[in-house]
C-alpha cells in the first residue's frame, strides 16, 4: 500500500496529510489558543483618530524597521518596563478589513527603535511631527526616511488659524520662504504613536525581566565601593538628546538649549530636577516636555543632571541621588 516508489497516489497523499497534520499541531491549534486572550483592565481601544493613524503606520510598512515587542530579556529593558504579554496586542492586532489581515506589528527587524512604549518615552507631538517630516531635523545620524508627503508647504499668508505649523529649521526646507503644515494624516499618525504605551499590570512581580548576572554583580560592587553614578553621557544620549540634541543646543522654535541655560547652571539644582521629574510646559515658543519621574531612577536623574551641568560650557556642581530623592519626596508631599 505504501510503496512510495511506485505509487504516486500514496506518495502525494502521505506527503500532504502528514504535513497538514503537523501544521495543525504546530500552527493552527496554537494560533486558535493564542487569540483567546482578553485585554488588561487598564487598556482602552484605539480612538478613531488613532485608528486612522494606525492604518497609515501599516500602509507605510513601519513594521519593517520598528518592532513592538519587549522580549523577556534584560537588553529589552530599554524599550518597556516589563516584557510584552499576549494581552498587550488585544486592540491593535485585529483583522483590518476584508482585504487585510491582523497586522504583524511584532516585527522582525530593529533597524529603528522598538515602539512599544514610544508614547511614554517620546510624548511631545511637536517632536514627532518634526521627526516625521525629516528625522534628521532632530536626530542627526538617523537613517529613517522622511515622510514629507504627510505635510503641506504653504505660503505664510495662506495659513489658516487652526493649521499646525511645524518649526522646521531653514536648512531642511526645500522652499525657504514657505511654511510646513501638518496634514490630518500626519496628526493621525502622531496620535497613534503617542498612544503607544505599555498598559499597567495588575499585581506585581509576575513579569520581571530576566536579570543579567554580569550586570547585577557590577552594580553591587560599584555602589558598595564608590557610590558611583550610572553613565550620564549614555543616559543623556538615549533619553534627552532626541530633543535637546547631543550638543545641548536644542532646536530653535521647538526645544530649548541646555548649554548656557540659567536653570541648568543654577547653583541650586532644584528647578532642574523638578523639570526632569514633572515635565515642563510654560514657554509657548517651545514644545511640551514630558515628566520622567516614572521612567528614571534617582541615580539616573542625578547622572543626567550632572552630565548637563558639566558639559557644553556649563559649569555647575554635580547633583547627588540624595538630592533627587528629597525633591521627589517634596513633590509627592505637595501633591498630597
Amino acid at each position: 500500500m505504501f510503496n512510495f516508489h511506485k505509487d504516486h497516489k500514496s506518495l502525494a497523499n502521505t506527503a500532504l496529510f502528514v504535513f497538514v497534520g503537523l501544521s495543525i499541531f504546530i500552527a493552527v491549534v496554537p494560533a486558535f489558543q493564542m487569540q483567546e486572550t482578553k485585554p488588561l483592565p487598564s487598556m482602552e481601544p484605539l480612538t478613531e483618530q488613532q485608528h486612522r493613524g494606525f492604518n497609515i503606520y501599516i500602509a507605510e510598512n513601519c513594521v519593517s524597521c520598528h518592532t513592538q515587542q519587549v522580549r523577556n530579556i534584560e537588553m529589552d529593558n530599554a524599550w518597556g518596563e516589563r516584557p510584552s504579554i499576549p494581552s498587550d496586542y488585544y486592540f491593535s492586532k485585529k483583522r483590518m478589513d476584508v482585504w487585510r489581515q491582523s497586522p504583524s506589528i511584532l516585527g522582525s527587524e530593529r533597524t529603528g527603535p522598538d515602539l512599544t512604549n514610544v508614547g511614554k518615552r517620546q510624548s511631545g507631538e511637536e517632536w514627532h511631527l518634526l521627526h516625521l517630516y525629516n528625522p534628521r531635523t532632530v536626530v542627526k545620524e538617523s537613517i529613517m526616511p522622511g515622510y514629507p508627503w504627510l505635510f503641506e508647504e504653504k505660503n505664510e499668508q495662506d495659513i489658516a488659524p487652526d493649521d499646525r505649523v511645524i518649526p522646521v529649521p531653514a536648512s531642511f526646507l526645500r522652499h525657504p520662504s514657505k511654511k510646513i503644515v501638518a496634514t490630518q494624516q500626519a496628526l493621525d499618525l502622531v496620535a497613534y504613536l503617542q498612544s503607544l504605551e505599555q498598559p499597567a499590570l495588575q499585581g506585581d512581580g509576575t513579569a520581571e525581566f530576566i536579570a543579567s548576572i554580569k550586570k547585577k554583580k557590577a552594580t553591587v560592587s560599584e555602589s558598595e565601593e564608590t557610590g558611583n553614578l550610572p553613565d550620564g553621557t549614555a543616559l543623556y544620549a538615549s533619553t534627552c538628546a532626541a530633543c535637546h540634541q547631543a550638543d545641548g543646543e536644542g532646536l530653535p522654535g521647538a526645544f530649548p538649549p541646555l548649554a548656557g541655560s540659567a536653570i541648568v547652571n543654577d547653583e541650586n539644582p532644584e528647578t532642574l530636577i523638578r523639570i526632569i521629574l514633572e515635565g515642563y510646559d510654560t514657554r509657548p515658543e517651545y514644545g511640551v516636555m514630558a515628566p520622567f519621574a516614572n521612567m528614571l531612577s534617582d541615580e539616573e536623574i542625578a547622572a543626567i543632571a550632572t552630565h548637563e551641568r558639566g558639559n557644553w560650557g556649563n559649569n555647575a556642581p554635580a547633583v547627588s541621588p540624595q538630592k533627587v530623592k528629597e525633591i521627589r519626596k517634596l513633590i509627592q508631599n505637595l501633591k498630597e
Binding site: 502525494a12 506527503a15 500532504l16 504535513f19 497538514v20 501544521s23 500552527a27 493552527v28 496554537p30 494560533a31 486558535f32 489558543q33 493564542m34 487569540q35 486572550t37 499576549p86 496586542y89 488585544y90 492586532k93 485585529k94 483583522r95 489581515q101 491582523s102 497586522p103 504583524s104 511584532l106
Partner: peptide
C-alpha cells in the same frame, strides 16, 4: 503540495487575531 497548504493556512482569517497571527507568521 506543502506550499499550497501553507498559503491556505497563512491566509485563512479565523485564527489570526492577536498573537494567533504571530504564530502563523
Amino acid at each position: 503540495l506543502w506550499t499550497i497548504t501553507l498559503a491556505i493556512i497563512g491566509y485563512l482569517p479565523n485564527y489570526q487575531d492577536g498573537l494567533g497571527e504571530t504564530v502563523i507568521q
